[in-house]
Structures are given as structure tokens and as C-alpha cells.
Amino acid sequence: MAILNLKKIGVSGVNSALHKIVENSEKDFEIRNPQGQHSIACGINAPLNVEIKGHVGFYCGGMNKYAKILIHGHAGVGVGENMMSGYIHVKGDTSESAGATAHGGFLVIEGNASSRCGISMKGVDIVVGGSVGHMSGFMAQSGNLVICGDAKDALGDSIYEANIFVRGEVSELGADCIEKEVRPEHSAKISKLLKSSGINANPTDFRRYGSARQLYNFDVDNFESY
């Protein structure tokens, strides 16, 4: 395993090392002294194993492809934003917009996520061990957001074809978001995601939320929703 001391080489030094991967080069990295810096381990384009020993700032693992990133701490805004594939696991809590616009891959947050978790998600699977803040799943297009705790206001506002599963309380649903039947395929999906995340919860405790599809095309009779 290669050790990258961020305090010594800086964020650019760390990312540069993670971007210069060629065949047969080192695949396992440990980043020490992350110091809450922004943009750590973003833009990785290779199946690396990256462990970050501490807290990180904004956009950690942004646009990740293929890599497995384990964060031993809390994460700032936009962890795993626009990730395409791979796996990001946050041992602590995250700030706003976790997994924003992510197209694929798997994001696990053991603690709580702040507002806008999974905003505009486009295929990613997200499991949150704790609760999420307001506007989570806003305009979520596809993928699955599993929330083991509670969800605050405007959950799934203007949601498209993503699924949101919540075990706890939902303060309020957003526009065009409704509770839907949990069919066997959904239970199986929850079960699989929980197992993969390592978070212990009973899949049958979750409710499903998705789009009512009433706002997909303009209709003047939906005036009060616009």
C-alpha cells in the first residue's frame, strides 16, 4: 500500500498520484492527514482502493469511476458528486448534497446526511445509516436512496423514476412525490443494498416513495403545484 501524506504533498500531489495509474502500478493507497481539505480523491478513473484517514471537505470522490474509497471520518458538501461507478463509504456524517447527480456506483453514509442528499441522482444507489435533511432526492431521476433514519421536509420533490426507501419518519413529501407499494423486488433491492453497505436494518421496516408522474407534462390544472 502506498502512503500519501496530504500534509506533505498537498491535495494536488495526492490527486496527481491517484490519476497517474498505469498497468501493474500500485492499486492500494492510504491518504493520511486529509485535514478536511477539499477535492480529495476526485476524478479517479481506475479500480483503486483508497482509504482516507480523517475528515474531508467538499467534493471528496467527485466524479469517481471504478475506485473504492473509504473515508474514516466526516465528509463535507458533495461527497461522491456525479460519481459514475465504484464505491464510496463514509464512516461518519456528511454535509449537503451527498451523491448529487451521481450516475452510478454505490455511496454509503454510516451517519447522518444533511440536506439535498441524492439531489438530481441519476442512477447511483445510496444508503444512509442515519437521517437526511430537507429536499433530499430533489429531482432524483433514477437509482435508489435508502434512509434508515428520518427524512426532513420536501422529500423527493419533483422526483422522476428514482426510488426512495425510508424506515423512520418523513416530515413532508415534496411536489409529485407519493408513497408507493413495496413490492417483492423492492424488498429484495433494500435487502441487497443494506447487506452490501454493512448497515444492519430490517428490510421490511421501510416504506417506498416515488413519483406520482402528475407533473411530467404541463397541465394548467396543476397550477397550484407550479
Binding site: N15, S39, C42, F58, V77, G78, T101, R116, F138
Partner: peptide, 19 residues
């Protein structure tokens, strides 16, 4: 979806430059 205001934008630009 993941930044608001010029202070956040500065960090977003930093991310794009790093990528």
C-alpha cells in the same frame, strides 16, 4: 445542486481543476 454562491463556486472550480 452542490454549490451555492461564489465561495462554494471557488471550491467547485478547484475540484474541476483537480479532476
Amino acid at each position: 445542486p452542490d454549490w451555492t454562491g461564489p465561495d462554494d463556486l471557488e471550491i467547485k472550480i478547484h475540484e474541476l481543476r483537480e479532476i
